[in-house]
Design a protein around this nucleic acid. Sequence first.
DNA 1: TCATTTTGTCCTTTATAGTGGACATCGCTC
DNA 2: GAGCGATGTCCACTATAAAGGACAAAATGA
Lengths: 263, 263
Amino acid sequence: MDAIINRPGSKRARERQNGIDRVIEILDALLRTHTPTKIGDLAKQIGAPRSTLYSITNRLIDAGILEAVGDEGTVYFGQAAHLYGRAYADANPLHRRCREALDRLAMQTNATAQLCALRGNKYVVVDTRDGSGVFRITTDIGVEVPIPWTASGRLLLDHLSAAEILDFIPEEDFKLPDGRVVEANTFVADIAKARAEGGCITNGLSDRFTCCLAAPIRDRRGIAVATLCFIVPIDSAPELKRQLLDRLIESAQELSDRPVSSQ
Amino acid sequence: MDAIINRPGSKRARERQNGIDRVIEILDALLRTHTPTKIGDLAKQIGAPRSTLYSITNRLIDAGILEAVGDEGTVYFGQAAHLYGRAYADANPLHRRCREALDRLAMQTNATAQLCALRGNKYVVVDTRDGSGVFRITTDIGVEVPIPWTASGRLLLDHLSAAEILDFIPEEDFKLPDGRVVEANTFVADIAKARAEGGCITNGLSDRFTCCLAAPIRDRRGIAVATLCFIVPIDSAPELKRQLLDRLIESAQELSDRPVSSQ
DNA sequence: TCATTTTGTCCTTTATAGTGGACATCGCTC
DNA sequence: GAGCGATGTCCACTATAAAGGACAAAATGA
């Protein structure tokens, strides 16, 4: 009722799956894979009979939600999916305003500006504006990333207790891509610190060369529903980082709802 | 096999509908309505039992494909839909290149530049760049418009015979919003003329104040899969219109595949 | 060349999900 | 307060769709 939580990847190995659930599994699998995929591979990935997959994907292709890509038997999202997504982005007031903020931030600073949020128990980039600067190690939109790998992740779990945080994040997500492990206690402390400071800076976390700066966008209740962030080279001057973070915090605050009082 | 045709609105009044078809109906209804809608209204629009709609929409909300909007019982597209759509737009090479072309065109000319295509037997705007000029009577992305109302429509049916064209377009779509009726023969002649000239200009068609300029993007087989267009005030100088159209034609040709030869 | 895997389609079976009611709550208006 | 429509939930029934094979054809590799 009040959770921002939906878990697309919740594993229930029912014997016989509902068609709608299969559709959802297919779409999520394609989003994870992030590349056109063969029907047979899709079937394997979601553990469904091939015959079922053929039947469902053909219907989705007819509807334009999926498209047969190029020459060889692979499918990916179709034009209808694009139209649905644009309808969402155009109608959602917060999203609209965030896009404008991203435009401004990227334009003024030449850094890559991103809008990030939770999807299930992962972090995803929802929108990006690539700065005109050369530096560009950017996560693709929609790709799920373990929460502890990110600065934004340290803000988005703001409202949870230490126990809830550790319960929310899968064990294995604390292992960074380079093999290092984020200590649970350190992570919880990071979150508290980020909350106190109203923003977060991480250096060389998800990869060795990037510094991520993030500030929270909050709803009336004070819960962080999204973050604005910058991606800059790790060797940027500390003063510059501080200055960029301040800019993020300012923008994010403008995008936040007034805490409970008026209305 | 070789048709760009999918008819989202094909009316089959089956007694008992498949869940997946219901999902497609729901998504298309929301796209048509283009606004958050109450479950009961959705049920009426697609002719489904309310109980079914509650069950399906709740599942789609869990998956993030739909979202409960604001306070009062309405639903609309959700964040997952946005992510799917971005995945499509980022992965589709033609779409990527078209976006860049739109950016350039809108930037250089200050006019509103659009990417248009067919969806079933209607015309839709797939993407837009609003020019910095004040003039802005823009169709929303994804909203279906009768083909005869548009300049692009006169290019997108290029490859059909007169009979096929008239068979493809619903009778009632020839009636313009102001009550005038586009003569079938005139329309077919318009298409031939547009094909010969490699572009199309319409004045005051879908509304009294706008002039639409369009040029076709073709695949290997020479079929127009999309169009680039400009929206300008109807009283713009003819030389300007001509100049803008030439620019469109040039860009559209660069985006077109080489006609069958190499490869 | 033959062996092996993958692909796309088709068919039968049976668990199940979409129906179409009923029902209790609301929020209206008169 | 009565009358009315809309809302959200629940339940039993049965048409149907997901399943799980089988099959031919195409692709792959040895």
